[in-house]
Write a protein that binds this DNA or RNA. Sequence first.
DNA 1: GACCGTATGTCAAAATCCTTACATGCACAA
DNA 2: TTGTGCATGTAAGGATTTTGACATACGGTC
Lengths: 149, 149
Amino acid sequence: MHKGETVGPLDTAVGYVLKEAASALRGAMDASLRPLNLTVPQYACLELLGQRPGLSNADLARGAFVTRQSMNVVLQGLEARGLVIRPAEAAHGRQLPAELTPAGRAQLQAASTAVHAVEVRMCAGLSPARQKELLATLAVCARNLTETT
Amino acid sequence: MHKGETVGPLDTAVGYVLKEAASALRGAMDASLRPLNLTVPQYACLELLGQRPGLSNADLARGAFVTRQSMNVVLQGLEARGLVIRPAEAAHGRQLPAELTPAGRAQLQAASTAVHAVEVRMCAGLSPARQKELLATLAVCARNLTETT
DNA sequence: GACCGTATGTCAAAATCCTTACATGCACAA
DNA sequence: TTGTGCATGTAAGGATTTTGACATACGGTC
């Protein structure tokens, strides 16, 4: 067995600490979204639609890192609550471009504020430069793993 | 609405990119563990036990960021496959200290090598210094969110 | 000793999510 | 035009995970 062939001590393994941070973030997010009666996937859907109106179900699924089927039930729930609207028929292809209703925008405003507060808390003590580098480094990591080559 | 109250563009939001990276890592990990007939939680359990023999079910659950109940089914599965052993009775309290069998150690060796390869691929192009800073920064983020104060 | 708070292992039920599958619709090439 | 490939929306099923609950066991204080 050569040195470095296996995963080392957990607190020095990038993957482990990454999961630890993601898990903590997830927990903090649903705690802060619960008062608004929103789950994390529901919030993700609203945020996506707020920033990119007209996204299809499949687009939203990719953006929220879930399957189309999961996003579809999220959309149906948000639609039933009057936060999102989708046309009955597709104008082009099969895609049904979704959009926020005024009520959806209001919910998003509250939710996004709450989530932003969580992010601020998470990054407490990190200089802007360090936050920026974290962002860039994580983007590189994600890219390295999603490349098909 | 004041500047910065809500979450900004997705690719500049730390939380979003963090989830993106974690999701990519999860996908790459199951792909590389599938040939070994191991899921990510199962691998996590083996890795924990390899590094800290005698951990209880609750300890393993905390270390793998799942509930005790989930870890319990994982343990039962690994026990049935002869990779892990637990005493029938607790020596102290209710904790049942789990340990790897020789077969479990062999499986862990293969799995840990595969996962390490994924981590290497993920960190490709990052200098050792940058990896170290990533590690430290993520640890700070996790700490900031898990503090009870 | 008796009590209360906390931690553990486990069971049952519910919710969540993914896997599989199929019917459609567009784009592109032969 | 025809067909092949790929993407989409949706439904049904199963697998996994969490939620809620309970009995037990230790550690502290009164």
